[in-house]
Design a protein around this nucleic acid. Structure first.
Lengths: 327, 327
DNA sequence: TTGAAAGCGATACCAT
DNA sequence: ATGGTATCGCTTTCAA
């Protein structure tokens, strides 16, 4: 590994000048700077990250802690964070908060020991880690007071509900996997909020058994709102085998806009998270803190959008009358 | 940030002793070592990664370059690599080879500048990058001569084919997305290899249009082998709307065992990659090189396994006779 | 068993 | 415009 000293001695100059030239601060004559640059590439010089980090006190690396990069959405977020960080000249060190709060804590600790300049953490299941050693940005839901950047799951839920209201649906089934998940709860809450007073709805959790779709349909339900694309897909396929075609008999809407949403027939109408924006704000916020411009660390909330596809359609006239059923 | 010197002066001893004690090399008296450890935790000492890296010439960080962490399987691999690296006391810096070979090259360069000790690279689309600056492990297919750790896509293809042969199927449709993908080609090749002489088959690529499933079924096809779960899912849902039930009318098999394989109805029979083993070998190999035990850098190939689920079933007696159709 | 001191590579202050 | 030099925190010989 060549270092600045070797470039310097190769040119018969001082190491300090080499540093100045390479830093491009303009303290060196254009001529010498060029020769230094030439020599550097000639020797294949690569600046030592360790040397620089030791002197400057900054590693140029930020840590990313997520519950499980295997879960949907997280890979996209990681990808986007890496892209944004790269634009800022920062690297991203990943760490998995394997199972539970302890894993999260030790993952954070490990990152700090590796000398990261800051940490972006997507907290594990409603936990709200506080990091004191380095600047950090918590990416969670608006209901978490420590969350700096949040995905507006309630708004996403409202979006799903209003989209189907506009299509004329009035009787809904809301399905989640797990009532203990704050994210799922927020989504369901948002749906319920938008529906209250305008339509009838029932909330079901698959952890307590899969709903009887035929019965629900017979009772007037024409639209099903789910908390995930996977769940929406399951509903559609289950319905299909029972003879209920989507979107003719029932409209179904998913969440997260996974790749599968475009791969299945009918394609899935889905509520799509703005991962790009989430990552942008997370990195920007952390970068601002790192650049001493720590003043604008205001919380921000990122909305979902909707992708209309084939799994949702207009309600049949039969189901349009809200007075047919009690609220 | 407290450092060793502060611990030393706080205890009225030398910094060297602190270093020795904390390194646990046993050169220090048990008693003193304990007091040093106590003082360290008291002061909240965190060793400086930069200082250590500068001195030892090793950062304890390895880079992971992948085409697109958004694509299926890659997140799992990244996750597994991070886990394995963690066991070895190594961190993982991720980098995306955004679009094409250039992005890959610059991603690798960026990692080197960040001072990684080694790089694991999953090459972009059949490229075969050669890294000279640091030790590296290429994770690709057996057909790539530079690949150190390979996933045996051909074997996976054979596995899919033989599984359906054993169920009595004889007339097959092989579907891929893109004939330019080496991975997909290997999988298809493996299928064709296992089928040749035992059954009839046709290969189709969705990039040239989606096959007419009704026509194929009418022509005797009872099993469809795909190169991905997403494609399998599309086939199943498309077939369902055409009145072809899976697995009664046709058996369908996917690849990669994505989470969705267990979430849809019918659940997907799928060829599952051993990401854990792939990552284990990748990290182990790199770690061996880093530990100077560079001798055993033998290439290794990791086989796929199969997860039998609901999307495949026995062929109906009608389709069992191979003589009904020409080879 | 413990300490003194050199040095890893880059940077920034202070001279010249 | 350029050079000398101290310094960041840690490790590692060599001495005591």
């Amino acid at each position: 590994m060549t270092n600045q000293k070797q470039i310097a001695s190769g040119l018969g100059i001082s190491a300090a000048t080499v540093s100045n030239a390479l830093a491009g601060k303009g303290r060196v004559s254009k001529d010498l700077a060029d020769r230094i640059a030439a020599k550097a590439t000639e020797l294949g010089y690569v600046p030592s990250a360790a040397g620089r980090a030791l002197k400057t006190g900054r590693s140029g690396i930020l840590g990313l802690v997520m519950p499980d990069i295997t879960q949907p959405v997280f890979p996209d977020f990681a990808h986007a964070v890496e892209g944004e960080a790269d634009k800022c000249g920062l690297g991203v060190l990943i760490a998995n908060s394997r199972g539970g709060e302890d894993g999260q804590a030790s993952a954070i600790k490990a990152l700090i020991q590796r000398g990261v300049d800051g940490i972006i953490v997507v907290p594990h299941r409603g936990t709200s880690p506080i990091i004191t050693e380095v600047p950090s940005v918590v990416v969670s839901t608006p209901s978490d007071p420590n969350s700096i950047v949040s995905a507006n799951h309630r708004q996403g839920g409202r979006l799903a509900a209003t989209a189907l209201l506009e299509l004329g649906h009035r009787h809904f089934l809301l399905i989640g996997d797990d009532p203990l998940s704050p994210v799922q709860m927020d989504r369901i809450d948002g749906m319920a909020e938008a529906l209250t007073g305008v339509g009838t709805f029932e909330i079901m959790w698959t952890s307590r058994g899969f709903p009887d779709l035929v019965e629900k349909h017979g009772a007037g339900v024409s639209a099903i709102l789910t908390v995930s694309d996977l769940l929406a897909l399951r509903v559609i396929t289950e319905a299909a085998r029972l003879g209920l075609r989507c979107p003719d008999a029932i409209s179904v809407i998913g969440f997260d806009d996974l790749p599968l949403a475009k791969a299945v027939r009918p394609t899935l109408t889905s509520i799509v998270p703005d991962t790009a924006e989430l990552s942008r704000r997370s990195v920007a916020c952390l970068n601002a803190i790192l650049s001493q411009n720590g003043q604008d660390v205001r919380r921000s909330i990122v909305d979902f959008t909707i992708a209309h596809r084939e799994s949702t359609g207009p309600a049949s006239p039969l189901n349009r009358n809200p007075t047919r059923r009690k609220q």
